[in-house]
Design a protein around this nucleic acid. Structure first.
Lengths: 262, 262
DNA sequence: CGACTAGTTGAGGCCAGTCAATGTTGGTGG
DNA sequence: CCACCAACATTGACTGGCCTCAACTAGTCG
């Protein structure tokens, strides 16, 4: 019984949605690639680990999986067995309100980890959907706990990972609770730029992987408002935007917007 | 050198605000009380630990501290050395925007833990202010990490604690991002009721420890809006409200409000 | 090609914000 | 004890930012 079978079971027992019978996942390589070879190792879960702990990390035997654009990695209420590190591509995490309204809680790039909110009661709290064809590394949580037990430095890494997520969410709450629409979008663009830069990509020109509606969901705005703001920023010469291709022309202006009075 | 001295140092080196010279903390008892005696032990950090681990937990020598109403336990940018479990009373956590706008990120009751967002980079990410005279137990984080290393069940508890915070924050993001004002207040009241009930208090009658403005800050609303909503709920017979004394009369109605269409 | 999804833009409405006046509460000191 | 004050709360009138509804365009895919 491979990891994938188990995970597929999880996927199919979870949601009772229309897509219930569509296989969610497909394994890419059973020859589990090692973290110590990974180009992302300095940005991902094992960031900062000394060489010997990194070796132990390889023995986790994380299995890499491919998710096609629009497909779901797991749903809320699916059983929690692993967290997932984005290897390539990107995805969104979302929760559904009682009426099925979708709230995007985050966008995730390579090196980032999703699924941490499922640890508490062994059930996933959100749904993960790929924004483009995406590869993730499934890290069985029990194995992570064992590894954390053996290595205090990795244990500390795990705490930091969770703590960072909490701090990030608090910032998002500030955005949603006290910023006006244009401040939210400006903050969003600057955050994306910063993260692309951290990965070595251009920080002033990038492609949005999500729709206007998805951006709006994350920012607490309607898609028309997002679209209008893009047009306004473009008109004001702050950015260039052509569909999903965005170029930041005046980051100081964006920064000033974020820091402007209510 | 006691914990308190260290903590007071932290407090005074932290903020450069007007209150910088006002002593923030005062120790209540150097005779560190033990968790195994604590009436909150089943709701707090050591929840669910077996007896022998609980004994090890006592050796943490958590120091109990008293914070007066309106006083600050720590500020953002203070050095992170410990997390704090609320022993009695209640407090709010908040972050400040660039313009000094205050966003409340949470209200915390006995048994709940604050400070987890400081683990990542060793610096507190938010400020904690007591809403009433409050006692907290300072849990030195290094000691918690050592204990987690010795006890896998406690290690799991720590992960659950952090994970719960993440899941809670996601729910707040849903509230801020997709609910209208009356839904937000209804959800807020029901959440308070649930938590009071979990502590064994009345779940339908309680005293709000925060001002209308603070409620508004948490919910992304202005204080006038909060006040108007209280009046409306009262007028509609859903709640009784007299200043800060609230009585829930029709919880189903509140539930229906939360679950209503946008 | 037609159907569909994503995005843009305009017109109008409404919910929550803003400004302002007044009422209420709680703490302090004479 | 009461007077006083400051902080908190309520309520009204008005405004405006974002939502809603709708029409239209552009690109994609079977």
């Amino acid at each position: 019984m491979g990891t994938v079978a188990a995970l597929q079971t999880v996927g199919s027992t979870g949601g009772v949605s229309a897509r219930a019978f569509k296989p969610l996942l497909r394994e890419v390589s059973r020859s589990t690639p090692t973290c110590s070879d990974c180009t992302l190792r300095t940005h991902c879960v094992p960031a900062g680990l000394e060489q010997d702990t990194l070796g132990a990390f390889d023995r986790l035997r994380a299995s890499r999986m491919r998710i096609k654009r629009g497909d779901t990695l797991y749903r809320a209420t699916d059983r929690f067995t692993a967290v997932y590190a984005v290897r390539s591509g990107s995805c969104k995490t979302l929760i559904l309100s009682e009426q099925g309204h979708e709230q995007v809680t985050g966008y995730h790039m390579p090196g980032e980890v999703v699924g941490l909110d499922g640890i508490d009661n062994g059930v996933h709290g959100c749904q993960v959907v790929a924004l483009e064809d995406t590869e993730v590394c499934a890290l069985p949580f029990e194995a992570l706990e064992r590894l954390a037990h053996d290595s205090t430095s990795f244990q500390h890494n795990m705490y930091r990972l969770l703590s960072r997520e909490v701090a990030r969410d608090h910032k998002t709450m500030l955005l949603l609770g006290s910023m006006r629409a244009e401040q939210r979008l400006a903050a969003f663009l600057l955050d994306l730029a910063r993260r692309y830069q951290a990965l070595g990509y251009s920080s002033c020109e990038f492609i949005l992987r999500m729709t206007r509606e998805e951006i709006g969901s994350f920012l607490g705005l309607k898609l028309e408002t997002v679209s209008r703001l893009f047009s306004r920023f473009h008109h004001d010469g702050v950015i260039q935007v052509q569909g999903r291709v965005v170029k930041l022309l005046d980051r100081n202006a964006l920064q000033r917007l974020v820091g402007a009075e209510p």
